[in-house]
């Protein structure tokens, strides 16, 4: 049996949740609504995050372009995602939404530009 304490982030209430896993059963306590229940389960079993960062741009008017993972990636893969972004470069011009790294770190999620970057 494993218990984890966490803060629900879905609204300003910030309920303190106690999430307990007992075999296949997961119990969430401390939540004030059904969304909190779902959040607690998700955070315990498969926490996911959107990762944002910036990527080097070659030949651009600005040295960097902001990027994000197009969807959520497993929390445990954040370091690898950041490393992959750091290790790569984009070439100007870059369009907002353009895929700069496909299937980053094997997550199945793409890295996309979140701004336009003109070439010099």
């Amino acid at each position: 049996m494993k218990s984890t304490e966490m803060t629900c982030i879905l609204c300003p209430m910030g309920c303190r949740l106690m999430v307990t896993q007992d075999g296949d059963k997961i119990r969430v306590e401390g939540n004030s609504c059904a969304r909190g229940q779902k959040y607690g389960v998700q955070e315990l079993t498969n926490p996911e995050r959107v990762v944002t960062s910036s990527i080097r741009v070659m030949g651009g008017q600005m040295p960097l372009c902001p990027v994000k993972t197009k969807g959520q990636v497993p929390k445990s893969s954040i370091d690898e995602v950041l490393h992959a972004i750091r290790a790569s470069k984009a070439i100007a011009p870059v369009k907002l939404g353009q895929v700069l790294l496909a299937n980053v770190a094997g997550t199945g999620v793409d890295i996309v530009a979140t701004a336009n970057r003109n070439a010099v």
């Binding site: 959107v50 944002t52 960062s53 910036s54 907002l96 979140t114 701004a115």
Partner: peptide, 25 residues
């Protein structure tokens, strides 16, 4: 917003989650 490259913008105004530069765009 240009330098607020994190997400969390626009949930109320656009009903979707954007980064700062995307919101500005």
């Amino acid at each position: 917003l240009q330098q607020c490259i994190h997400n969390g913008f626009g949930l109320h105004y656009f009903k979707e989650e954007l980064t700062g530069p995307e919101y500005a765009e």
